[in-house]
Design a protein around this nucleic acid. Structure first.
Lengths: 128, 128
DNA sequence: GTCAAAATTGACTTTTACGTAAATGCCGTG
DNA sequence: CACGGCATTTACGTAAAAGTCAATTTTGAC
């Protein structure tokens, strides 16, 4: 496991711009350490970026992603906080389950659409 | 099956604004008919709205949604077009499969996060 | 130390997806 | 026919999420 990654290494790996990574830092999503003014990204930052991009692909806003990554961190020490966090996690999961339903329905409609196309091709006498 | 729905009926049903529905019309996603200047939405428009909102929840942009809803329509009559459409459909499905992987991974990480919280509660001697 | 390549900051711009306000049309009711 | 309520158009506004550009700095290789 590497100790540090440079900003451009990560922009290449994830196909995002340096501006994007700085934006995520401004937004408090990642906290790379500094050597002088240069950012050094640790494996944990790299993992966080992976999670952020996953959230993005699923259509979560930066704020929602912020909420999610907070859930991945060490659980709080206080009982009230813990219970609140469990509630929040449950809410996000419900959110994701809705997305899963949406996803399956969309996939199924695309299946139908493709079948219709294939049938139409067959009608036209094209060997698929 | 009702023949027509008014704009406000649909805004209530889907919890969106009239502005949003007019926006979708401007964007060419729906085509309600008119009685004078008033929009009348048919069941097919209603179904389209449902599909649009599903796409939104999955993080698709308006342009991507436009592409998707075009796939739900009657298959084209020309062979080249048909083959192109099948290719596009396959691309969207790959896109959705990526989202599904993202979704499962996120769900699984949230599971871990919740477990960690529950364990922490147990350590603190709280009866879950 | 020098010099190019890489990284930094800050300011400004852009795109997307609507929100909001103003002015006005249409229509059923009393 | 005046009114309330819904609908319409036009026009401008805005928040989120970066992109772009310019002007320095810093770093790494020699």
């Amino acid at each position: 496991m590497r100790e540090y990654y440079s900003i451009t290494e990560l922009t290449r790996e994830f196909d995002i711009s340096t501006r994007t990574l700085r934006f995520y830092e401004d937004e408090g999503l990642i906290h790379p350490v500094r050597r002088g003014r240069t950012r050094l990204f640790r494996p944990s930052d790299r993992h966080l970026i992976r999670q952020i991009l996953r959230g993005k692909r699923l259509g979560f806003s930066i704020n929602e992603i912020r909420e999610i990554v907070q859930m991945y961190r060490e659980p709080p020490g206080e009982v009230g906080q813990l219970k609140l966090m469990i509630k929040r996690i449950e809410e996000k999961r419900e959110d994701l389950r809705q997305k899963r339903r949406d996803l399956e329905e969309t996939l199924s409609e695309l299946d139908h659409a493709e079948e219709a196309c294939v049938e139409r091709l067959a009608e036209l006498g094209v060997n698929t």
